[in-house]
């Protein structure tokens, strides 16, 4: 029984350090995990990082502090936070100064690229702020191919059906339920 419990737990954690591609409606329905504040749950599967893609529909810049913006993928709006205080933050004080300067320069470039109407692919940690979910962004790619958003939708649907949803469908005999695309 303990062995079974261990297998089930490891399956539930198998996506924990992965940037999981999620549609906004799916992302916005993640549940906070009170036992592990840095993790969130999608039908019992623990997640900590996400990748999302959408049209930038809102942005608020506090120079040298943060850029807040929202991306709309047609199923919901995901709030995103990009910290811009790397050179002042204690969080980075243990990192090598040249690395911190490089990260600061990179995020400065992201800030100028993230403009209303552009399509941004973001990766980062799933975090909660005042009861709402957001992505604390570590990486941004501005997509210029007009078909890229459709490819992202299809990726999210395929991954949910063939990967994410099979984690929750673990049965006591250790078989999984697979849903065809």
């Amino acid at each position: 029984m303990d062995h079974m419990h261990h297998i089930t737990n490891s399956r539930m954690d198998k996506l924990y350090n992965t940037h999981v591609k999620l549609l906004a409606f799916d992302f916005l329905n993640l549940k906070p995990n009170h036992a592990h504040p840095s993790s969130f749950s999608r039908q019992g599967t623990r997640l900590s990082r996400a990748e999302a893609l959408g049209v930038v529909v809102w942005r608020e810049l506090k120079p040298n502090k943060f850029l807040k913006f929202s991306i709309d993928d047609g199923t919901g709006c995901i709030p995103c936070l990009l910290w811009l205080n790397h050179l002042d933050s204690h969080y980075f004080s243990r990192r090598h100064p040249s690395d911190v300067r490089l990260i600061a320069e990179l995020t400065k470039n992201f800030t100028s690229e993230i403009q209303l109407g552009g399509v941004a692919r973001v990766r980062g940690k799933i975090t909660g702020y005042r009861g709402a979910l957001q992505i604390t962004v570590s990486d941004v790619v501005i997509e210029r191919d007009p078909n890229m958003e459709v490819f992202h939708w299809l990726d999210c649907v395929r991954l949910a059906r063939l990967c994410y949803d099979t984690v929750k469908d673990v049965k006591p005999d250790n078989s999984t339920t697979h849903v065809p695309f």
Binding site: A24, V55, V57, W58, E60, K68, S70, D72, D73, G74, T75, G76, C77, P79, A132
Partner: peptide
């Protein structure tokens, strides 16, 4: 303006 007031554009 708060992000929470922005609704997503339903795909039509």
């Amino acid at each position: 303006m708060s992000t929470s007031v922005i609704g997503h554009g339903e795909l039509v």
